[in-house]
Design a protein around this nucleic acid. Structure first.
Ligand code: FES
Ligand code: FES
Lengths: 155, 155
DNA sequence: TGAATCTCCGACAGTTTTGGTCGTATACTA
DNA sequence: TAGTATACGACCAAAACTGTCGGAGATTCA
């Protein structure tokens, strides 16, 4: 139904939270989970996956936790979603592993792949920083035009 | 996982097929299903839904079947997907019925809604006609630049 | 040393969503 | 009236998603 999983949602929330607390050296999974009221163990697993893909840096032991491995501006929503939900593909037949059974007959795939790319492009153009709360003052100062991105779809 | 359902896929295929056969007054669900090798009964249900939402016109009885209710250029992929998969979109908490349980804490929803809108825009800018096979000659003549759409994302 | 805190990781059950089937009622044509 | 085709709802099986548990390793601090 073209919606991202709750896990990816949680992951984005967590990264956003980390981006909003750059001063702290690390935040534990429980800290973040409590902040949003989401299952701690589940979030832990999500953060672990994000660590494995290099978006986060982890530190065990007391006062340990997770921290962004790069600047929030350098982490795209696409990377997060991709890390958690795996390769992102619109077409129900994931071309990755094995082609769809009815690949020969279906000629719809190619144009949809373009759409897919476009959506990926949109997601790639959004960084965690974009998601994080800006100063209300800043938002007011800039009026409504906080940011704009142009995406081209070639079909 | 951000992928559209097989049903929507089937629906798009079927419409594309209808768009490619404008001469025939109507095509039965079985005809189309056979052409692509997809379950006939399932496709029938899909076409019925598309009929109910006004994208198709149906006709029972012998030599009956389905036909596009408008020009293929006037039917967007968005409409098809929306008809089949229901009000779609990104955020795991469907704002439609009832807000998510943790709506207050989650500040990530608004920016994602913009992304959502952008994707919807992409889908809306694509018509069944765009999906249908063009004459190979035509494609060659026009070179690679068959069509381009611009989508703006405001965040 | 050892207790406390935290990450790491696989396995597992409960629920929801999908994909697909069946049976039947209805509409239209010849 | 027989044959074809849509309309619709109930139903089921398989897959995906969400969330939980239990244990194993790191790290810090007393
Ligand atoms: S559905 Fe698999 S190739 Fe189109
Ligand atoms: S997950 Fe429900 S409001 Fe964000």
């Amino acid at each position: 139904m073209l919606k991202l999983t709750k896990k990816a949602d949680y992951g984005l929330m967590a990264l956003k939270y980390l981006a909003e607390h750059p001063e702290t050296p690390a935040l534990s999974a429980k800290d973040i989970a409590d902040a949003y009221g989401i299952p701690a163990q589940l979030l832990a697993k999500i953060l672990q996956r994000l660590t494995k893909t290099g978006l986060l840096r982890s530190h065990a032991g007391m006062n340990g936790g997770y921290a962004l491995s790069r600047d929030a501006r350098e982490i795209s929503a696409f990377e997060v979603i991709h890390s958690i939900d795996g390769p992102l593909f619109i077409t129900s037949c994931t071309k990755g592993a094995k082609g769809c059974d009815l690949t020969p007959s279906c000629t719809i795939k190619e144009p949809l792949a373009r759409v897919n790319e476009t959506i990926a492009g949109v997601l790639k153009s959004i960084s965690i920083y974009d998601l994080a709360d800006r100063d209300p003052a800043k938002a007011a100062e800039a009026g409504s035009s906080i940011g704009q991105r142009l995406v081209t779809l070639t079909l």
